[in-house]
Nucleic acid binder design. Structure first.
Lengths: 232, 232
DNA sequence: GTCTTTTTTCATCAGGTGATGAAATGGTAA
DNA sequence: TTACCATTTCATCACCTGATGAAAAAAGAC
């Protein structure tokens, strides 16, 4: 909003960054991440990013090319990490509880990495989740990337659920997944709406409160939909 | 994307609109609604809106003032209608089932008006829901308006639920509401993600499939969270 | 030290942005 | 008719946008 305070500045003109241990490329990505999360792709100018990063505008184009490529770079930077954390979490759960998996356990293994990373990962990750939530309901901005990285995790979830509820139909599982992801993304966005709505009783940032409720909520939802399909 | 085709054009220069039954103000709102929904506030220029509406740029400022006021006008136009439909639906349910209300019934009365309007309201309403979903996780653009109109409906929901589950804690009800609204908004956005994810098994636009699952899903989720709180 | 390569900055471009004041238009009322 | 007034258009402003080519500065190779 106001005049940006440079966070990294090269000494003179030359090439000091790597010698000083400053990676301007990362600094630019950090700045862009925060701004894109707050204002969206079109709501941010390359000059704002440059100012926030304490860097000349041209440097952004030198490293990333067009503005859209910068956005993609921001999106990709953490996508792989996130993806592998979730796959590992699912793997670990399956290996540890293979004989007696529960819906709630599987769903927890699917969601918990995100909560944990959001809690422990610092502000960068918080911004990143806001960004992912944005992309999640504006597929035009990276829906393809979204699909490329996250479809495998989702299919892993669905297949695992199918293993422990063989009678469930795929249609039901996919719809339930959509409901789950809507809850999850809105929660990770930490918009503050629940704070004002509940007049201070709940806090967006209280992910422990989420953990205590969301897994059970979703598991019961899946169960109900599966059961209802059996009846109808 | 491409060259816009004018949809309404005044004959010469003067003031033919009302005589012809054409309300250019509404035409502008329609055009703005569709564009804002697709590209977001900053992703749309007043010139694009003008072109889509078949109108001069200056006319937009004549009717609405600044661009942001145009956005607010778009948002407000349908907010009141939506709000009253939902309050009426809740009222009707309570009056009809007062002695024996169910969680699923109350939740259905809360959500169903949106599904019905989205199904029967035409493209304008579809765009509007995308817009509301956008605002829902970008509170900076109209979160205040959002709260002003929709908080009363949410409180009505929560109070009604508290009536039929007096043992429930408000904290739990608010968290569950957040989960519900996340599922609902993502669903109403009809992003098409479920279509590709399920390889054609499900369709974003199939709101009948949503009706058959979402109410039961949410009701079971609420029930589980309330029950778990009682135990813990 | 000189040469080369990478990084950073400067200066600038062509085009687009939201916005406005003034003029044109034609319906309405006297 | 004539005067008025809401509506619509035109022309334009000051500023910002993403992007680029060339120059400057520093690090590393020899």
């Amino acid at each position: 909003m106001t005049a940006a305070k440079p966070r990294a500045r090269a000494s003179g003109r030359g090439r000091p960054s790597k010698a000083k241990g400053l990676d301007l490329k990362e600094t630019i990505l950090d700045a862009a991440e925060g701004l894109f999360a707050r204002h969206g792709f079109y709501g941010v100018t390359t000059r704002q990013v440059a100012a926030e990063a304490g860097v000349d505008t041209a440097l952004i184009h030198y490293y990333f090319g067009a503005k859209r490529e910068l956005f993609d770079a921001v999106f990709l930077r953490r996508a792989e990490i996130l993806n592998q954390a979730r796959l590992a979490s699912m793997d670990a759960y399956v290996k540890a509880h293979a004989p007696a998996m529960t819906l709630e356990g599987v769903i927890g293994a699917f969601i918990d990495p995100l909560l944990r990373i959001s809690q422990d990962g610092g502000l960068g990750w918080k911004s990143y989740f806001v960004l992912v939530a944005q992309v999640n309901n504006t597929p035009a901005w990276g829906g393809e990337t979204m699909a490329r990285f996250f479809d495998p995790v989702v299919h892993r979830l669905v297949e695992t659920l199918k293993t422990i509820r063989p009678e469930a139909e795929y249609r039901d599982l996919f719809w339930c997944y959509q409901f789950l992801t809507g809850s999850m993304m809105l929660t990770l966005s930490e918009t503050g709406r629940i704070d004002s709505l509940s007049e201070g009783e709940c806090h967006s940032s209280d992910l422990e409160a989420v953990r205590a409720r969301l897994f059970a909520y979703c598991a019961a939802g899946f169960e109900a939909v599966i059961a209802r399909a059996g009846k109808a």
